[in-house]
Design a protein around this nucleic acid. Structure first.
Length: 273
DNA sequence: AAATGTGCCAACCGCCAGGTT
DNA sequence: GAACCTGGCGGTTGGCACATT
C-alpha cells in the first residue's frame, strides 16, 4: 500500500514553535478558519506539518483555552470520567471546557495518578490497589468520590468492595429529539449518588455471556463491569455511532457494547465551535 | 557554584477510522 | 472493493525549569 507521509518532512521545522510561527498560524486561522490542515502550512507560509499546525492550534493557540491550574472540581470530574471512560482523553476533555485532551492527559500522568496512588487506588482500574484484577465489579471507593478526604491518605485497602452502579434514568426528552442526553446517575457504594446530567452513555447490548452481569430495562440500565466494557477500542468512537452498528466492538458475539457520547461529534461541548 | 536528579509539558509519532477517488 | 487521503486519537519523548545534593 504505502501511505504517503502527511507532509514533506524534509522541509519542515520541528520542535518548539516560535512567536512568528504562532502569529502566522493564528492570523491564517482567523482569516480562513480551521480545516484542511494539510494545505494550511503552505497557505499560511509555515514550514510545518499540517498535523503539527493542528496540534499547536488545538492545544495552545485556541482563544477559548483555559490556562492555569486545574481546580479540585476539575480533578474530581477527571477522576470520575476516567473511571468511566478510561484513557479517552478527548472525551474527558469534551466535558471540561477550555481544557485540551493533551493537557488532561499530561495532568493525569503527572498529578492525578499520584493522587490516586496516594489514596491507595490503582489509577488504571480505580480500584483499591490490592484488589483482585479478576473481579468484574467496577469499584470506586468512597474516598475517591469525596473531595473532603483529599488531604488525608486513604485507609489501607480492605477486601471489602463497593459497587458502583450506573443507572440511566428515563429521559424526558421529546420524541423528536432522539439524541438528547439521558441522565446518568452514578451510585457509589456508600449510598452517595451523583448525576452527570448530560453524559450520554448510549448503550446497545447484545446477548450477554461468559457470566457478564448486564441487565437493561426500558427505564434504566445497570451495568456491572462498566469500565472494562467502556474501555474497548481506540481512536475514534465508531462503536455505537448513530449511523453505524457497534459490531466492530464485539468479539465473537460475546458482549457487544456500543457507546456514543452524545453530541461530541456535533460539538455539543465543543468549545472550538 | 556546579552537578545531578526530578517533574512537567509541548510536541512528535504511529495508528486508526471515515471519507473520497 | 481497493487504494489513498485526511483528520483525529492516545502513547511516548525531548527538553526545559526547578529542586536537591
Amino acid at each position: 500500500m504505502g501511505r504517503s507521509p502527511c507532509c514533506e518532512k524534509a522541509h519542515t521545522n520541528k520542535g518548539a514553535w516560535t512567536k512568528e510561527e504562532d502569529d502566522k498560524l493564528v492570523a491564517y486561522i482567523r482569516a480562513h478558519g480551521e480545516g484542511c490542515w494539510r494545505s494550511l502550512p503552505k497557505a499560511a507560509g509555515l514550514l510545518r506539518c499540517g498535523k503539527s499546525c493542528r496540534l499547536r492550534w488545538i492545544n495552545y493557540l485556541r482563544p477559548d483555552l483555559k490556562r492555569g491550574n486545574f481546580t479540585e472540581e476539575e480533578d474530581e470530574v477527571i477522576i470520575k470520567l476516567h473511571s468511566l471512560l478510561g484513557n479517552k482523553w478527548s472525551l474527558i476533555a469534551a466535558r471540561l471546557p477550555g481544557r485540551t485532551d493533551n493537557e488532561i492527559k499530561n495532568y493525569w500522568n503527572t498529578h492525578i495518578r499520584r493522587k490516586l496512588l496516594n489514596r491507595g487506588i490503582d489509577p488504571s482500574t480505580h480500584r483499591p490497589i490490592h484488589d483482585s484484577p479478576l473481579s468484574t465489579t467496577t469499584t470506586i471507593p468512597p474516598t475517591s468520590h469525596d473531595p473532603t478526604t483529599l488531604q488525608n491518605p486513604p485507609p489501607p485497602p480492605t477486601n471489602t468492595t463497593t459497587t458502583t452502579t450506573i443507572s440511566f434514568a428515563p429521559s424526558k426528552k421529546p420524541e423528536n429529539i432522539p439524541d438528547m442526553a439521558e441522565n446518568v446517575t452514578i451510585e457509589f457504594g456508600n449510598g452517595k449518588q451523583e448525576e452527570f446530567p448530560d453524559l450520554n452513555l448510549e448503550l446497545s447490548i447484545s446477548l450477554p455471556s461468559h457470566g457478564e452481569k448486564i441487565s437493561t430495562s426500558s427505564s434504566s440500565s445497570t451495568l456491572t463491569s462498566t469500565s472494562s466494557i467502556l474501555r474497548n477500542g481506540r481512536g475514534k468512537l465508531a462503536c455505537g455511532n448513530e449511523n453505524k452498528g457497534g459490531s466492530e466492538c464485539g468479539s465473537g458475539g460475546v458482549v457487544v457494547v456500543g457507546y456514543d457520547f452524545l453530541g461530541l461529534k456535533q460539538g455539543m461541548l465543543d468549545s472550538t465551535s
